[in-house]
């Protein structure tokens, strides 16, 4: 069991560090790549929670597709490094820090209250597939349509021909 905790702490710290890099790094490409790493480490953490499907999907969808898209867009728009301080006006900086800190405070005092009862994990791909296609069939189809709409929408917005 030592291995799992080690893996967890390793990848957790990895994720946090690279998350900080994401928000602090002036160069967007570097930020995105560090994002890849954070998400990859998250996928590993999913494995430790015994949720391999989610891990696989995370890697396949997130790191594999979405962040590649981000990189493509960054390159397409040729976004340079941010010249001045990555943050804008200081008042907003401190404002946001205070508010986020406040947010964490509230959530934690909420989180402490809930009690967790450990129970046996009966993870199996079949069970997931079954519930996916039985109870949540409707939302499954709905997501299908959502994706279709997103595809059509994205193409139209991005490639709107400038008339006249």
């Amino acid at each position: 069991m030592m291995l799992e905790t080690v893996i967890f702490y390793l990848f957790a710290s990895l994720a946090v560090i690279f998350a900080l890099v994401v928000i602090l790094h002036p160069d967007p490409v570097k930020a995105t790549l560090s994002m890849v790493i954070t998400l990859f480490s998250l996928a590993v953490i999913y494995l430790t929670i015994k949720a391999p499907l989610i891990a696989a999907l995370q890697i396949l969808l997130y790191t594999g597709a979405i962040l590649v898209l981000f990189l493509f867009v960054i390159m397409l728009l040729n976004i340079q490094r941010e010249i001045s301080l990555p943050f804008s006006k200081p008042v907003q900086l401190w404002g946001s820090i205070v508010s986020v800190g406040f947010l964490i405070g509230i959530i934690t005092n909420f989180a402490i209250k809930i009690k967790i009862e450990e129970s046996v994990k009966n993870y199996s791909l079949v069970l997931i597939a079954e519930s996916l296609f039985k109870e949540n069939a409707l939302s499954f189809i709905a997501t299908g349509f959502l994706l279709l709409a997103a595809v059509v929408g994205a193409t139209i917005i991005a490639t709107k021909v400038k008339r006249g």
């Binding site: 404002g95 508010s99 406040f102 947010l103 509230i106 909420f110």
Partner: peptide, 12 residues
């Protein structure tokens, strides 16, 4: 920022 403040108030 308004958004976050809103959420905070809501949760609070």
């Amino acid at each position: 920022l308004y958004f976050v403040i809103g959420i905070i108030l809501l949760i609070a």
